[in-house]
Amino acid sequence: MSTTESPSHFNDLETLSTRELLAGINSVDQTVPQVVAQALPQIEPLVEATVERMQRGGRLFYIGAGTSGRLGILDASECPPTFGVPQGLVIGLIAGGDSAIRQAVENAEDDAQQAWRDLQAHDINPNDMLVGIAASGRTPYVVGGLAIARRHGIATGCIVCNPGSSIAALADYPVEVVTGPEFVTGSTRLKAGTAQKLVLNMLTTATMIRLGRVKGNKMVDMQLSNLKLVDRGEKMIMDELGIEQPEAAELLRKHGSVRAAIEAGRN
């Protein structure tokens, strides 16, 4: 039995008070960052390989089913507004297609050929990086996608939550975050999902920093898509150039991005 499917260490959950339930969930959640820390030696080469491919024009693809697929889509969707990169530089694909983002699609994850068909629709090629996300480490949609991609010379990585999985065996850059039994037996949207989210945060954030999309500690290429972000951008410019808000606002209005405004303000 996989460790993520092992029985919970907690019993008779229906008899516990709300406070006891919350304390129990919180107690097991606290183990997740420790497990992720142990996987840093695996995450590092995955980041390095992703950076290398993006520097030569490649993209990052995620494939997954259920919670894992949704987490990949979430991470991919946040890269353009956060780092100002083009739509389509990071692409998340989920078994069952976009309708599966909101509602489970029965048996979608069991088709071992569909992931490759989904990837072909985006013209995946050997310049790209493909990362399979699956808590179990054996989801057919992900297994099939990685296996076929490797045969086509595409670099593969994975984020799984069980040791020695078939998906990890197919990955050039496997990341295994072994989270163990869930609070509710088998509910991998809990600890396993949290661990996967943390690794995805690391992967794209470190990659984008390495690609020059952060200056100092600031998102200078972020999209100014609402008033909150415009205000944040003005404060970045004020801090960087030592100027007052009206001047910062004018620079941002004129040049359209924090990076461009800072560069213009220094010239």
Score class of each variant (00 low, 15 high):
residue 1 M to W: 00
residue 11 N to V: 13
residue 12 D to Q: 11
residue 13 L to E: 00
residue 15 T to C: 08
residue 27 S to K: 09
residue 29 D to T: 07
residue 30 Q to C: 09
residue 34 Q to A: 10
residue 35 V to C: 10
residue 35 V to A: 14
residue 40 L to E: 12
residue 43 I to F: 09
residue 53 R to I: 11
residue 57 G to V: 08
residue 57 G to Q: 08
residue 64 G to Y: 01
residue 67 T to Q: 02
residue 67 T to W: 04
residue 69 G to V: 03
residue 71 L to C: 09
residue 72 G to Y: 05
residue 76 A to H: 08
residue 80 P to F: 09
residue 80 P to Q: 07
residue 83 F to E: 09
residue 83 F to Q: 09
residue 85 V to F: 10
residue 90 V to F: 14
residue 90 V to S: 06
residue 91 I to Q: 09
residue 94 I to A: 06
residue 103 Q to M: 15
residue 107 N to V: 10
residue 108 A to N: 11
residue 115 A to L: 11
residue 117 R to I: 07
residue 121 A to W: 02
residue 121 A to I: 02
residue 124 I to K: 05
residue 129 M to W: 03
residue 133 I to A: 01
residue 136 S to A: 04
residue 136 S to M: 05
residue 138 R to Y: 03
residue 140 P to H: 10
residue 145 G to Y: 15
residue 148 I to G: 03
residue 152 H to A: 10
residue 157 G to H: 10
residue 158 C to D: 03
residue 159 I to A: 06
residue 162 N to S: 13
residue 167 I to D: 04
residue 167 I to R: 02
residue 168 A to M: 08
residue 174 P to G: 11
residue 176 E to L: 03
residue 177 V to F: 00
residue 180 G to V: 07
residue 182 E to V: 01
residue 184 V to F: 06
residue 194 T to V: 04
residue 196 Q to E: 12
residue 198 L to C: 00
residue 200 L to D: 00
residue 201 N to F: 04
residue 204 T to H: 13
residue 204 T to I: 15
residue 211 L to M: 14
residue 212 G to R: 14
residue 212 G to A: 02
residue 215 K to C: 07
residue 225 S to Y: 03
residue 226 N to W: 04
residue 229 L to W: 05
residue 229 L to T: 11
residue 229 L to H: 05
residue 230 V to N: 02
residue 234 E to T: 14
residue 244 E to Y: 11
residue 245 Q to P: 03
residue 248 A to H: 11
residue 259 R to W: 05
residue 260 A to K: 09
residue 262 I to P: 03
residue 265 G to Y: 12
residue 265 G to H: 12
residue 267 N to W: 05
